[in-house]
Amino acid sequence: MDKRNVNVNYMKATSVAFSSIFSIGDTYYAGPKSRGIAVQKEGAIFAQNDQVQFRNYDIFSRKAKWPKQKPPVQQRIHHHEPAINVELAAFTGLSSSSICQVGSIEKIYAEARLKHFRVLREDSDNEDDNENENETYNDEDKSHTNQ
């Protein structure tokens, strides 16, 4: 497939972080993958115990269900204009293996895996029984009650 040109007059980006790509030009293949664990904790005091590992959660290892094969499509594309025109494109943040591209990408296979934790302070009534403190970040084969 022949690709159109792209004319962008003005672009404005504030932040490009965590293996993200801001790209001008053509690409044949892009396969970004990102995985992250977000720990949000009441009180925001983080200790050794809060350093959770990817390997403990099967969301990061289970297989994604990719489409087995693409259906046969005969497509004919007619570009009646040689270019795409954009006056202004602006974004604040580009994060976690994301891509902002001005130009074509032939093939894209992207994958994201994210796990959230929310750790709340214990009730003042229960302050005596701190025994389950180490079970805050349970493995997935146990329970989800403390997550």
Binding site: S34, A90, S97, S98, Q101, E106, I108
Partner: peptide, 29 residues
């Protein structure tokens, strides 16, 4: 296109101004 304004592009997302043949995306959350 006149103006495009985006707050955030995250978690292996793509903002593409241009042509594309094939795109397959997967996300676990």
């Amino acid at each position: 296109v006149g103006n495009v304004g985006i707050d955030n592009i995250a978690a292996s997302s793509i903002f593409l101004i241009g042509d594309n043949d094939e795109i397959v995306l997967s996300s676990f959350f």
